[in-house]
């Protein structure tokens, strides 16, 4: 275990933490807005998978990273519209909708993937390069950890204060929070509850789709079935463990990302503990985190309750 604490390795683990955090953060901070608006979108995993998949298709078929990111955003938006249609318009149970969506995404991506690669070797791609921020990236240690990252990682981190500002310092943000606490009050005021909830769901899903796209383009060179491996669920756990506050969500996401970064490094270094133990850590941590946070003071009162006019 001693090697783990060598300087270079520690820096490498922390830099990997920030990279691994990115897709989780996109999904968690996006879905935070959705949940604050009262919609329990349990389809995060499926939406992320769709984002990752379409990003793979576009980057290998059209060889365009920008196109791949746009495709992931679009896939997220479509999945979000479907969730909103089911939960807001049809008022299907939010949990059931999310489960259905995940299963749908899993089936569709597998089918399209197999059709896409049928009869040829699986195409691969070159993903994002690091963008070193001038000046900042020269700071010892910190430069390598924080300022030599993929471009979208900076954007993901920036999204946290932006979402915080939106939720707590703008009129629309106040209305989003009110949607999750007392939608009737907004309805009485003449605000279109359904339209606002549609927007909140689509925003969250677009961010989640982007997270999926980053997962593909920022880490990997090919798509694999079920490549998201539960990250969508970890994003949901991060929101609950973070008590529905942007800062808390960021912290929870960091914990998951650190554990995953640790696992990948342990495999390379070759510690005498089965590597499955380390791979399982984020999932174990999520259960422990949930056990530790019994108080759900921040949970929006009307979260998951379909709104209908009496």
């Amino acid at each position: 275990m001693g090697e783990l604490f060598q300087e270079a390795i520690l820096v490498s683990i922390l830099a990997a933490t920030v990279r691994i955090m990115t897709p989780l953060l996109f999904a968690a901070i996006g879905e935070l807005v959705t949940q604050r608006a009262g919609i329990w979108n349990m389809g995060v995993e499926g939406t992320m998978l769709m984002g990752a998949f379409v990003a793979y298709i576009v980057v290998t078929a059209a060889d365009s990273l920008v196109g791949a990111v746009l495709a992931a955003l679009l896939a997220g938006a479509l999945m979000g519209l479907l969730v909103a249609f089911m939960t807001v318009t049809l008022r299907v149970d939010h949990f059931v909708t999310g489960l259905g969506l995940n299963l749908l995404a899993s089936g569709l991506t597998l089918f399209w993937f197999r059709s896409y690669i049928a009869g040829r070797p699986q195409p691969t791609f070159d993903g994002f390069e690091n963008v070193a921020l001038p000046g900042l990236s020269d700071i010892p240690y910190l430069g390598e950890i924080l300022f030599t990252q993929r471009g979208l990682t900076y954007f993901a981190v920036l999204a946290v204060p932006l979402v915080w500002y939106f939720l707590y310092r703008t009129k629309y943000g106040l209305e989003v929070r009110c949607l999750g606490e007392n939608p009737k009050a907004l309805d009485v005021k003449g605000v279109n509850v359904a339209a606002r909830q549609y927007c909140a769901v689509v925003f969250g899903s677009v961010m989640t789709g982007l997270g999926g796209g980053f997962l593909m383009l920022g880490f990997s060179d090919r798509f694999l079935a079920e490549v998201t491996a539960g990250r969508g669920w970890l994003a949901i756990v991060a929101i609950i463990a973070g008590n529905w506050m942007p800062k808390g969500v960021l912290l929870a996401v960091l914990v998951f990302a650190f554990l995953e970064a640790l696992a990948t490094h342990v495999q390379v270094i070759g510690v005498a503990v089965p590597h499955q133990v380390f791979l399982a850590l984020p999932y174990l941590a999520s259960i422990l985190l949930m056990m530790g946070f019994k108080v759900r003071a921040g949970q929006p009162a009307a979260l998951g309750v379909p709104y209908r006019r009496a």
């Binding site: 259905g100 299963l103 749908l104 899993s106 089936g107 569709l108 597998l110 089918f111 197999r114």
Partner: peptide
């Protein structure tokens, strides 16, 4: 053959 899980997901929805 992955068509079948796709059919299942679509019909479920």
């Amino acid at each position: 053959s992955a068509l079948v899980p796709a059919i299942e997901g679509i019909i479920l929805l």
